[in-house]
């Protein structure tokens, strides 16, 4: 009986608590996706994650204000279990082409990092100031067989160079490099057949750095 009450009354609250958050960093203006818990332990993911080959998550966000799309962006997370060193090698590719390399020693470390990491998906300067907005968030898991990591790496190389020049040029519109990167993400990852897909619609929040 208690279990039934828990299932009916409390589970929706648990599910609600497990929803990711999308926050505009008030200092940098970057839109971050946080608290993506609950995907790493899906059977489709666990079956592939320890294959020793690279699997990828693609995080896509589109900000809507008054039912109209105001901005969109994406990030990609590549994960490979290195069998001999027994570490998870993680590459987080941000919307602007910036790559963060991580080594995580165990699945628990990976799960802990995953649930607390903030993934930068787009430059949202001005989005928070313009009033309430909602974000449609889509996270897909693309297994090794469907992804094209080398194409993605080439994309990273090229977009990194492009982003660098954009950063150096004071008159370069800020959104240009990120849209180029997003287009390349679309070209390499999003078109691949995902074997796991989660969607949320959440409020866009404003928060501090970190």
């Amino acid at each position: 009986m208690k279990a039934a009450v828990f299932a009916v009354v409390l589970m929706p609250l648990v599910v609600q608590a497990a929803e990711p958050r999308v926050v505009v960093d008030s200092a940098t203006g970057v839109v971050m996706v946080r608290h993506l818990a609950g995907m790493l332990d899906a059977p489709e993911v666990t079956r592939n994650l320890d294959s020793g080959l690279t699997n990828g998550f693609v995080i896509q966000a589109s900000v809507h204000r008054e039912r109209e799309a105001a901005a969109r962006g994406a990030a990609r997370v590549d994960i490979r279990w290195e069998l001999w060193d027994e570490v998870y090698l993680v590459d987080v590719v941000a919307f602007d082409g910036h790559v963060t390399h991580l080594k995580l020693a165990s699945k628990d470390d990976l799960a802990s990092w995953w649930s607390s990491a903030a993934f930068p998906v787009l430059s949202g300067r001005g989005l928070a100031a313009e009033g309430s907005a909602v974000v449609k968030l889509v996270v897909t898991f693309v297994p090794f067989s469907q992804s094209e990591v080398e194409a993605a790496r080439r994309w990273v190389t090229q977009s990194g160079e492009e982003t660098g020049s954009a950063r150096n040029g004071p008159n370069q519109p800020e959104g240009r490099s990120s849209s180029a990167v997003v287009n390349l993400v679309v070209a390499t990852s999003i078109v691949r057949r995902a074997i796991l897909r989660r969607e949320w619609t959440v409020k866009l929040e404003t928060g501090g750095g970190g």
């Binding site: 020793g52 069998l83 090794f144």
Partner: peptide
């Protein structure tokens, strides 16, 4: 269908 994985 086909799938690959590596072992030591």
């Amino acid at each position: 269908d086909v799938d690959f994985r590596l072992e030591r």
